[in-house]
């Protein structure tokens, strides 16, 4: 017997006779069956079917035009060295891609909805459990296979097989070990050390302490960073923000590590490593643009808002004989976000 039957017979099967109990509430509800099938316009009116067919064809035709449009925009809008052409080209390609793909989809769906058969069919579930004969046969096959393999009789093969499978994934550990050098202490130390001069980012040039007025901010890198083999890796750690404010506002430790109210703090957020550079000159707050962690420079860059949980490390600075700023030591702690060994 076919398990799929036309649902037409199922329509309107719901029984109106309900077994009533004494309280007026039925003991159980009868299966109401499917609602009667409603024919679409296209099913009964050949004119409507024809119209739907034309609509689908029109949508697919739009998709064709979109595809041709992509080719035309790529070939037709030539790059003439100006940005305006790139802008036009991007816009034209994007629009044509949208029309090409979207109208293809819309056409297909419209076709399915208006013209393809839409009668409901019932696909009855069958039992998951096999017949008793099938189940016995499966068990017999398993037993036979196990006996033929003879694992129980040949423990040597069994044990070496277990050993071989256990060792097979081990080389992967060594593959991973070779994917790159271990970070070593590169996360904990930066290029800053005693005597490193502070230079302006990105223009370079040492900074004279006397040149800084109150409210001044200078974005700073260690001198010689561009001569390194990997300057970008180092810049991601060594960026420093130099600020000058009234020395009386600073904490004693902070003022001692600075020069006449000029203090240098790591620019790398202790939350996720974004550059903390939004310095509000009047409130002396440093704001991280990524997650709004806020540090108070007057409280040794303590976190006063946001997800960061450690203050920004301060770089101790001093002036040399000519008045230029240099680091009096490296950072006393690792800069940037937490990592495993840092705790």
């Amino acid at each position: 017997m076919s398990e799929i039957e036309r649902a037409d017979e199922a329509h309107g099967q719901g029984s109106t006779a309900l077994a009533k109990s004494g309280s007026g509430v039925p003991e159980r509800f009868e299966n109401p069956g499917l609602p009667p099938h409603r024919h679409r316009m296209g099913d009964v009116d050949p004119q409507a079917a024809k119209r739907a067919e034309r609509q689908v064809a029109f949508m697919l035709l739009l998709s064709v035009l979109g595809s041709i449009g992509i080719i035309v925009s790529i070939i037709g809008i030539e790059y003439n060295g100006g940005w305006d052409r790139i802008s036009t080209s991007t816009r034209a390609i994007g629009l044509c891609m949208f029309v090409s793909l979207f109208m293809l989809g819309v056409g297909a769906v419209h076709w399915a909805k208006t013209l393809m058969p839409d009668d409901e069919r019932i696909d009855y579930r069958h039992r998951q459990r096999g017949t008793t004969a099938e189940r016995e046969q499966a068990v017999a096959i398993l037993k036979e296979g196990s006996a033929e393999a003879g694992l129980g009789r040949r423990p040597l093969i069994r044990n070496t097989l277990i050993g071989a499978l256990a060792l097979f994934p081990l080389p992967a550990v060594f593959f991973f070990r070779d994917t790159g050098p271990l970070p070593g202490n590169s996360l904990s130390v930066t290029m800053w050390e005693e005597g490193t001069y502070l230079v302006k980012d990105p223009t370079g040039g040492r900074i004279r302490a006397a040149d800084l007025t109150y409210g001044t901010v200078v974005h700073v890198m260690p001198e010689g960073i561009d001569e390194l083999e990997e300057p970008l890796n180092e810049k991601a750690k060594s960026a420093v923000l130099l600020m000058r404010l009234d020395e009386d506002l600073l904490t004693p430790k902070s003022a001692e590590w600075g020069v006449d109210g000029t203090v240098a703090y790591s620019k790398i957020c202790t939350h996720m490593g974004c550059p903390v550079a939004l310095y509000e000159q009047q409130t002396h707050h440093l704001l991280c643009p990524c997650h709004q962690s806020t540090f108070d420079v007057t409280q040794d860059c303590k976190v006063i808002f946001g997800p960061a949980n450690r203050p920004l490390p301060q770089l101790p600075i001093r002036v040399d004989a000519e008045g230029y700023l240099q680091a009096s030591s490296g950072f006393h702690e690792a800069v940037g976000p937490s990592f495993w060994e840092r705790g």
Partner: peptide, 18 residues
Amino acid sequence: TGPQSMPVFPNSTISPED
């Protein structure tokens, strides 16, 4: 001048040409 919240960028740190 660094008006309001904006910090100061004097000519000694960002030159007039810059």
